Simulated scan of single mutants.
Amino acid sequence: MKKTMKLTRTFFSALFVASLLFACSPEDGEDGAMGVQGEQGPQGAAGADGAQGEQGEVGSANVIYSGWIPSEFDNNIIATSDSFLIDAPEMTNDFIEQGIILVYGRSTPNPITIDTDVFSLPIVFGVARQQSYYFRVEQAGELYIAMASTVEGQSAGVPFFSEYRYILIPGGQTTSGKATPLDYTKMTYQELTEHFGIEE
């Protein structure tokens, strides 16, 4: 009886192993075939270039300015015009050819209000004064201040300005892109001095 059970167990074990061998295919365990690669998606559009930044302003360290220089005009000018020379050694040929030269006149203090007025040259005063003031540059380092009567044959009279000063702004400003450089000639004296931190 025991022998029959042992044979039966051995038979079923052998049958089980045989069924496993026949059930497995020789191809089992191999990697499946690689699928076809999908098409690449459309390339994203390149981003637009950023807008160009505005041109930087001229640094105040590059701006040259004089102190207030006393007028050398006579108290009452008999001639129809007159001028005097201011030494401006910083006013080089580069400033003359490429830079900006600004000149201002400051009036004699009002004896009542102690106020003074600052004007950019050139300037023409109308009926009240009938005078014109301007400056000219003949060569590097030499700045001439001039005044004249606006009435032909009339003496220039009593000067309005008692002091003058010059401000030299270097050139070489670019106008590329959309940046527009400031027009310093259209700024008031107060705007200009505040912009560049110019001391009185």
Rank of each mutant, 00 (worst) to 15 (best):
Q55V: 06
S107H: 04
S81G: 05
S176L: 11
V17T: 11
Y184D: 03
M5G: 11
A156F: 06
T185F: 06
E163I: 03
A88W: 01
Y65N: 12
I145Q: 01
I78G: 07
L21Q: 05
F135I: 02
F196A: 02
T92F: 01
T80N: 12
Y134E: 07
G126H: 02
N93C: 00
A156W: 05
A18F: 15
Y65H: 11
A146G: 15
G29K: 05
A61I: 12
P159H: 03
L182P: 01
Y164V: 05
I145P: 01
K178L: 15
S149T: 05
S66T: 14
S83T: 07
T175F: 11
I78Q: 14
P42V: 07
T150A: 09
Y134S: 11
Y65V: 06
M5W: 12
T92C: 04
T185A: 08
G44F: 00
T4M: 09
R165P: 03
S60C: 06
N93I: 09
F119N: 14
T108D: 07
N75P: 00
N76C: 08
K3D: 13
G153H: 07
E152N: 10
K3Y: 09
M34P: 13
E57K: 09
G157Y: 06
Y65E: 02
G177D: 08
Y189V: 04
E199L: 11
A14Y: 02
G59A: 10
T92N: 12
M5A: 14
G177C: 12
D82P: 02
F95R: 01
V36T: 10
I123K: 09
L15F: 14
I112Q: 13
S60P: 14
Y134I: 03
V17Y: 08
G41L: 07
T174L: 15
Q131D: 09
S162Q: 10
G32C: 13
